[in-house]
Design a protein around this nucleic acid. Structure first.
Length: 227
DNA sequence: CAATGATCATGC
DNA sequence: GCATGATCATTG
């Protein structure tokens, strides 16, 4: 497995330069330099690309509830894309609290905090490309523009309102313009506390906020280098 | 064939 | 169970 090491970037500039120096490299090359074995498939190693990049860029590995680069306030996210730069998957943001949100708002939400500064590392990762041959595209640092934040805040409010009204089980992946609420659990038997529409507590599947593909696709398009 | 709902590994 | 890292795979 992948374990942390002490090559923590000293500055935002150093981090970005290090990340961009990886552009064009394959996961196999990066893994080799790190002395890490590449899995044959990701069935049982779904988080492997993320962990590899965390390790390579000097992020703090593990399950700490902090940004990947605490000193810099930057979150690292790898995102699989096709050769045209379109994301192949939605992007997990954070688990959705289903209780105790009285008084919570967009400004103090985990979602806003998580997405305040993100170092995106796109990886050309079409399914027919073997893992070691998948190529890192151009990493870029992003913070939401006012327009982007408005979209996120709107969706956060809509989904949070439904949760507060006890309608969490009526929420599906179609809700939200750019951000959706979907299961986030080990399996469908996992349960967490929530409230129904009568205000009665009950157990339900844990959910997470995910960025929809058109949204992340737009971010990548905005940062495309033409050359 | 894209998207929604389900799932996998790890640490504490 | 929850928080970290995500992708799988069935379905509409």
């Amino acid at each position: 497995m992948i374990t942390p090491v002490e090559n923590i970037p000293a500055s935002e500039q150093a981090l970005i330069e290090k990340a961009q120096s990886l552009a064009g490299l394959s996961l196999g090359e990066i893994a080799q330099q790190a002395n890490i074995t590449v899995p044959k498939n990701l069935n049982r190693d779904k988080g492997w690309p993320g962990l590899l990049l965390e390790y390579t860029l000097g992020a703090t590995a593990g399950s700490k509830p902090e940004p990947d680069f605490p000193e810099l306030g930057i979150e690292l996210k790898t995102i699989p894309i096709n050769r045209q730069g379109k994301p192949l998957e939605t992007t997990f943001v954070s688990v959705a609290p289903l209780t105790g949100m009285v008084g919570s708002n967009w400004q103090n939400s985990h979602v806003k905090n998580k997405l305040s500064r993100v170092l995106w590392v796109p990886i050309v990762a079409e399914r027919d490309i073997p893992i070691p041959e998948r190529i890192v595209a151009t990493p870029f640092l992003w913070s939401p523009s006012p327009e982007e934040e408005n979209l996120l805040a709107c969706d956060w409010q809509e989904l949070t309102d439904m949760i507060v009204l006890g309608e969490v089980e009526n929420i599906n992946g179609r809700h939200g313009q750019v951000m959706q609420l979907r299961p986030k659990a080990a399996n469908s038997k996992a349960k967490t506390d929530a409230f129904d529409k009568h205000g009665r507590p009950f157990k339900t599947l844990p959910r997470g906020f995910y960025l929809k593909i058109p949204f992340t696709q737009m971010l990548i398009a905005k940062h495309l280098r033409i050359g």
